[in-house]
């Protein structure tokens, strides 16, 4: 009978990504309700040492597939190994990250296992002995409670939502064969073009400072960069600012951009079109700075300042700098 909670850990360049710890801690919490085991799948090359860190966050057993064939990530290769380890060990629940890689992999694995997958969940719990996965739909305009009757019940977890709590377990390494038939792998990564700006991706940022039409032009964003710099955050933009060519597509927050959930979201000169509100409503604390007191963004804000952002933002930057000094 299917039993236990399994996660697929994600690493990049030999380091575990934060989502892996969030997955481990969440799996631990679910498994403890039934006294079950938490296991993890860790794939890559030269990564066996990372298993101990998963142990620290609550993983009992780590299936390590350490092979040059596992680096860099290729969907077909990783999906084949993950599906095999899952079939061999029959977990009741399989969790992955809703990161770019996790979304790509989880869908392929679910197809291979012919099971159900709830993408980008913001909450998971056990109800009637089964996984109940809660996820935003319509970019958060409503939520769905997802139940899967096949095994394993799969869910991918939205980064930055689930706490990574330490809870030391064995993290015992079980080596698995991660060799793949090279002929079956049709895709090849030719080049990794790294973003050298050092900016944290919006989907993983703790603090986002976003600008909209009220920034008046690309130059206006420099004051947001300064505030983000002090708060160790990332600058985002509304669709209006992206469509105007002031910011890049990858910076867009909203229904047709990135759906984000930082601890702090500061919306500057953003009126709050429904598509934008949908993309940032799951942020923990929302601040709106806008001249227009009637702007819809204020309906979602925890703190609002109705004033000229070009006066308020630099001052806020100075205040924060002083507080954090």
């Amino acid at each position: 009978m299917a039993k236990g909670v399994m996660i697929v850990a994600e690493q990049r360049d030999g380091a575990l990504r934060k989502i892996s710890l969030e997955l481990a801690a969440t799996a631990r919490k679910l498994a403890d309700q039934s006294g079950d085991e938490v296991s993890a799948i860790l794939l890559g090359s030269g990564i066996e040492g990372l298993a101990a860190q998963l142990g620290k966050y609550g993983v009992d057993k780590v299936f390590v597939g350490d092979s040059p064939a596992m680096e860099p990530y290729i969907t077909e290769a990783h999906a084949a190994i993950v599906a095999k380890v899952v079939k061999d060990n029959d977990p009741a629940i399989l969790l992955m990250g809703a990161s770019v890689q996790g979304k790509d992999l989880s869908s392929r694995v679910a197809a291979k296992l012919a099971t159900g997958l709830a993408t980008d969940c913001t909450d998971v719990k056990i109800a009637d002995g089964k996984l109940l996965a809660i996820r935003p739909m319509y970019a958060g305009k409503c939520f769905g409670e997802i139940v899967t009757n096949s095994n394993p019940a799969m869910a991918s977890l939205r980064p930055n939502v689930f706490p990574a709590v330490e809870n030391a377990k064995a993290g015992a390494v079980v080596k698995v064969d991660a060799a793949v038939d090279a002929a079956s792998i049709k895709s090849k990564v030719l080049e990794v073009q790294k973003d050298t700006s050092g900016k944290v991706d919006l989907t993983e940022a703790n603090v986002i400072v976003s600008g909209g039409r009220g920034m008046k032009g690309p130059e206006g964003f420099s004051i947001l960069e300064e505030l983000a710099g002090v708060l160790k955050g990332t600058v985002g933009a509304s669709r209006a600012a992206v469509d105007a060519g002031w910011k890049l597509q990858k910076d867009q927050v909203g229904q047709t951009g990135k759906v984000v959930s930082p601890n702090l979201y500061i919306a500057c000169g953003i009126s709050g079109a429904i598509q934008h509100l949908a993309g940032m409503s799951s942020s923990k604390c929302i601040v709106a700075i806008n001249k227009d007191a009637e702007a819809p963004i204020f309906t979602r804000a925890d703190y609002g300042v109705v004033d000229d952002l070009f006066k308020v933002v630099p001052e806020l930057t100075a205040v924060c700098k002083k507080m954090l000094a």
Binding site: I146, N149, R300, D302
Partner: peptide, 18 residues
Amino acid sequence: KAKVAKTIPPPARAAGKI
């Protein structure tokens, strides 16, 4: 395989401070 057992409105946000 995955069923939407229930559709629910988003969690309400408490009124903010201006």
